[in-house]
């Protein structure tokens, strides 16, 4: 029994190492000169160099990687804000308020959970074109508010909150808005955090929408910007890997900071649905 546990631990540890290893590789490889990448000899650089980073830092116009980084931050943050506001209001109305036909409507929303976002690519493209939002960060922020997942998740959570709090507030003459703001939201922080983290990660890693909706390179987000390095006519691997590191490092650091919340959030969403 005891020996089994040790074997399992060793097996899991090795596997975990294999999972993290590529990330470590990004780190060490970004310090390699190109020639060493093409003539792969060892994992660690034989000759450490900062040239790759120097080149990126020296060309903020040619390689606007920090620009992309801030675009990504701005868009993901706003996206999270929009989703939390819009879906929490709707979920509150659907879960706690007296609305005619809300059951049917909730069923419709749940049904749209099955609609994969990428199916909507073409029509949403033309919708955005019609509104005039193409090549505009709003195109990546506002549509996220239509997330059926958000409504669903918060709806389930709000339903579980005790009725008594609300009834007491109604007797005190509180309006529905104040109940929503002062009672429901503060009680729902865990659920909101979960949805927020999800939305943020989803938006941060989103690839297809910015690829299709943005024309200008300086409006790209990081994932799409980094993809530009994959040009077919060059083998500047050092530069590419260094850019990848700049893109990855903050996310990894943020993950290490928030990992408990992120993991709790994912577990929660799995159980709630």
């Amino acid at each position: 029994m005891r020996r089994n546990t040790i074997l399992i631990e060793i097996f899991i540890a090795l596997l975990a190492l294999a999972f993290v290893f590529p990330i470590i590789l990004i780190f060490v490889t970004s310090f390699k000169p190109d020639a060493e990448i093409i003539h792969f000899e060892s994992i660690l650089p034989q000759q450490w160099t900062l040239d790759n980073f120097r080149e990126i830092l020296a060309s903020p116009v040619e390689i606007p990687i920090f620009r992309w980084f801030f675009n990504s931050l701005l868009i993901s943050t706003s996206c999270t804000f929009v989703v939390l506001t819009v879906t929490s209001m709707a979920a509150y109305a659907l879960a706690r308020l007296n609305l005619p036909g809300k059951k049917k409507f909730f069923a419709v929303i749940i049904a749209t959970l099955m609609v994969p976002g990428q199916i909507l690519l073409i029509p949403v493209y033309f919708t955005l074109d019609f509104i005039g939002w193409l090549d505009n960060p709003l195109a990546l922020i506002v549509p996220a508010g239509s997330s059926a997942f958000g409504v669903f998740l918060l709806h389930q959570f709000f339903k579980g909150l005790p009725r008594e709090l609300e009834e007491a507030a109604v007797i005190d003459g509180c309006s529905v808005f104040r109940i929503y703001w002062h009672i429901i939201l503060p009680l729902s922080k865990p659920a909101l955090a979960t949805l927020g983290i999800f939305t943020f990660i989803g938006s941060w890693n989103s690839f297809m929408a910015p690829l299709v909706f943005m024309d200008s390179v300086d409006k790209y987000t990081l994932p799409v910007g980094i993809a530009l390095f994959q040009s077919s006519y060059s083998s500047e691997y050092g530069l590419t890997i260094a850019a990848s590191l700049i893109c990855t490092l903050p996310v990894i650091i943020a993950f290490l900071f928030f990992q408990k919340h992120i993991i709790k959030g994912i577990s929660l969403s799995g159980l709630k649905s």
Binding site: L228, F229, Q230, S231, Y233
Partner: peptide
């Protein structure tokens, strides 16, 4: 997007320096 892009950027910079009334904004993608 490759090294040829850098040659082009140098040319654009020269044009912008020589022509105070215009500013060329270059954008490259694969």
């Amino acid at each position: 997007t490759g090294p040829d892009g850098r040659t082009m950027i140098q040319l654009v910079k020269r044009f912008n320096a020589d022509n105070p009334d215009y500013h060329v904004l270059m954008q490259r993608m694969d």
